[in-house]
Design a protein around this nucleic acid. Sequence first.
DNA 1: ATGAAAGCGCTAACAG
DNA 2: CTGTTAGCGCTTTCAT
Lengths: 351, 351
Amino acid sequence: MANDRQEPDSSKAPTSADVARRAGVSQTTVSQVLNGKAGITRISADTRQKVLDAAANLGYTPNHAARSLRERRTKLIALVMPTIGNPYFSDVVHAAQEVARDAGYSVAVIPMRAAGDLRTSALLQGAACDGIIATGHDNCSSPDLLALKARGLAVVVVQEPSPDPAISSISVDLEEGGYIATRHLIRQGHRRVCHITERLRALPDAESRLGGYRRALAEAGLPFDPELVFVTENSMEGGAAAVDRLLELAQNSPTAAFVYNDRLAVGALARLRERGVNVPGEFSLVGFDGLAIGAFTAPALTTIDSPREAIGRLAAETLIKAIEDGYQTGQTHRLPVRLVVRGSCGGQPAP
Amino acid sequence: MANDRQEPDSSKAPTSADVARRAGVSQTTVSQVLNGKAGITRISADTRQKVLDAAANLGYTPNHAARSLRERRTKLIALVMPTIGNPYFSDVVHAAQEVARDAGYSVAVIPMRAAGDLRTSALLQGAACDGIIATGHDNCSSPDLLALKARGLAVVVVQEPSPDPAISSISVDLEEGGYIATRHLIRQGHRRVCHITERLRALPDAESRLGGYRRALAEAGLPFDPELVFVTENSMEGGAAAVDRLLELAQNSPTAAFVYNDRLAVGALARLRERGVNVPGEFSLVGFDGLAIGAFTAPALTTIDSPREAIGRLAAETLIKAIEDGYQTGQTHRLPVRLVVRGSCGGQPAP
DNA sequence: ATGAAAGCGCTAACAG
DNA sequence: CTGTTAGCGCTTTCAT
């Protein structure tokens, strides 16, 4: 050995031809040994071992591009989300990843802030992945998503209505969640229950939190008052701002709120505290999602827990089935939710 | 047209050969038109337009695998993180993504829970990406990361010490942060300041929060008491558990804590409240990271703000330079932090 | 200004 | 049981 130093980065990665040469066999044999479905008794134990040794010595790793090109599949799933850093989707992703791994797929999360990102991300274009799990309103409703599907990618959407009958969607039962949350507040004696929400969408009642909210109201014989629906930005600041607005309602001001998600609820809770409104004494709150933070707020947050792992698992299973079957069934899964009672809503407030 | 229905998923994606045929030119010309560096006056305006039209009509997208195989580069950067759903890294990722996009790269986030994931993720193996930005202790210190580098991938680590002199690292000045945080508490009159931290690492003082904590103590002539370092799980629950332990200290119990990060601090804050300890009246707290949630806790959290965007930007810039230059410089960037004073630490507590 | 041909690394017919 | 050959879709010399 003239020089044991590691070569610089230029140490070209070994190819299967290198392995073949070193093992004294053909490239085919290398391929067979390394990928051969077990039981294809094609290779002698001796040859097999030689190949394995050579591959190990060389530190051989199959070139992904070459394999993908040849096999016309990548074993890669893209998970598109509006932003990373959302604890809700963290659990979804983890579950999806586990299912994917067991099926031999890897998962890459593609953060999508800008609208055009679906068109520009290298992983989504040119068959760089086999399928897409899409989350977030903008991504799921984008025509670009349909274009990707039209190019042969399998697509599943999560927590959004399916943009195309052939695309499967996995989500929790938002309507039921809204119903349970609102009913819980009404049962505590509240008569004026408001709803704090982000952007209002044109969804059928049966598919939205708002629909459930209205159903609970109707069931209790309470009127639906559009003035009690506060639309705000989807952030903690947004939740706080909504509280400011609802506290301005001089008369008939609400005594409770069903809040779109826990993030908004955390902001609302903070602002109520700042404004000296006692929760749950004077005002009650129910959130949505079941985030961990809800157990650490003051008071802890009553919320609608969403089966995040189940969502991720189902999304991955559905997607992988679509990939491997070569066609999409366009089924809709709607998962049940669960009320988690904590400190943010008490009994009947002072009238 | 016999049938206008979209073909099923089997509508094979058009290739550059298809475009060439349709435009009545050669594949070479198609490639030149579509990728040709501007100014290579090789193609006539007429031909150029024909190709562009044909490509548009066919909805042509270059096949990623084929291009990567041929060019020996993917224009893809992998961002490895222990878990998605961390708001801290969310900002880092966003900034990195922006830089990457401007340089013609896409970013894929690879969640890495299990230790072996670095070896099994398809995106990291077989030159499926050009470089890796790694975060999280386990990933950055893994021998697998070095193996990937040895195979020619560019690597940058974030918020972790560089595992190899050739690997660049970008991080905030943790020591300075620990110093500023602790000094702030001492200046408020606290004499018994504890430190709540996740796993204790064997780092030089100059590179850790703990080092800064000790420096501030020493500067104020206060003894360093190992009993006042509470090691706990890195979660809100962990922060709460640490509070339980520190409140057990019958005598000489601390009146303030410098906490490893905001997540732990949120948990600590919640438990202090539950236990009836007034913050900041009886106990003060400084966190680390500058997460948004800190502005919505009760009281709001004093913290050390970290320049997350700068980190992401620098990480991407450094990585891309390494990719394009073909070698790594192994520089260390250490970014300054900033104290954000909010409600969780007041003046001198009752003695 | 354009085209023909080669080859990136891999797998799968098809021979033997 | 193993090797030869072709070709996935692309870019790029090298001719013309």
